[in-house]
């Protein structure tokens, strides 16, 4: 009786785990493997593996379908927005973590409350703001909007990181005559590097993957980002399935690589804050 129970529980456990791995991984494997098949193979041999590793569809996607521009746009916008956001929130989190001043808790509460407002709801005011600034259909528009994306999350992560730096270090530096800026830049920034990396990775992933505001604020091919290009797939590729799968692979692989390299940090910060990156 006990043995049966044990076996049944093992069967249940591994069925759920196998199912979880399959639903998470199989669709991606299917997409990537389809990108190495010919159109005919995709339609007639859906279960067969690709017969050769032919990268020419990828070359074609980059050279003939403008994906070089989309990739560079995505990279440029995500990197610039992440770096500036990181600077801004590193400054704010530092004073919130290390000093007592008037309005401190108010600022912290306000910055955290931003988490509760779904990003989509601000669509019209932000759309009008970008129009009024004459920035519609520019990369700068997306950079500006993405600056605000990781606010609460970065301040959480960075504030916690600063709090681990012992007070004595700033006191000692103060006695040595170090200025406010020096204590921040020479003592604290090097010690919270891992926090900066975590916040940076999460913000970069969020920016790299963003679709909604890219759709709302740009229109031309010159400013299009990779996720946005997905919305034009049917008209772009019509019946070239191989290239369509290759293009989809190009969009998803960078995120997966970044995640694989930084999964410890990402999982930890997600678990502690319960917040999407």
């Amino acid at each position: 009786m006990n043995l049966i129970k044990k076996i049944l529980s093992k069967v249940f456990i591994y069925t759920v785990m196998l199912f979880t791995v399959t639903v998470s991984l199989f669709p991606i494997i299917w997409v990537v493997s389809s990108s190495f098949k010919t159109n005919g193979q995709i339609l007639t041999q859906p279960f067969g593996l690709p017969t050769a590793l032919d990268f020419s569809p990828y070359v074609k996607v980059f050279t003939q379908y403008n994906f070089t521009v989309y990739t560079l746009n995505s990279l440029f916008i995500a990197v610039v927005a992440t770096l500036f956001a990181l600077m801004i929130y590193a400054l704010a989190a530092y004073v919130l973590a290390k000093f007592n001043f008037k309005g401190k808790s108010l600022f912290f509460i306000l910055f955290t409350l931003t988490l509760l407002v779904p990003g989509h709801t601000k669509a019209q005011p932000i759309f009008s703001l970008i129009l009024n600034l004459n920035l519609y259909d520019t990369r700068l528009a997306l950079i500006l909007v993405y600056l605000s994306n990781g606010m609460a999350l970065s301040i959480f992560i960075l504030k916690a990181a600063y709090q681990t730096v012992p007070k004595e270090m700033s006191e000692a530096a103060l006695i040595d005559g170090a200025s406010f800026w020096q204590i921040f830049s020479r003592i604290h920034v090097p010690l919270v590097k891992s926090g900066l990396v975590t916040a940076g990775i999460l913000m970069f992933l969020g920016n790299w993957n963003e679709y909604f505001y890219a759709m709302l604020l740009t229109s031309s091919k010159a400013t299009r980002t990779l996720p946005l290009a997905l919305g034009f797939f049917t008209e772009t590729f019509s019946y070239n399935y191989t290239e369509m799968f290759a293009a989809l692979t190009i969009v998803i692989i960078p995120s997966i690589i970044i995640y694989t390299l930084a999964q410890e940090q990402i999982q930890k910060s997600v678990a502690s804050s319960g917040v999407k990156g």
């Binding site: 998470s24 993957n209 997905l230 998803i252 995120s255 999407k276």
Partner: peptide, 11 residues
């Protein structure tokens, strides 16, 4: 399990 959540929702 995390992978579907790190790639773009659109993708």
């Amino acid at each position: 399990f995390m992978i579907p959540n790190v790639i773009a929702v659109a993708a």
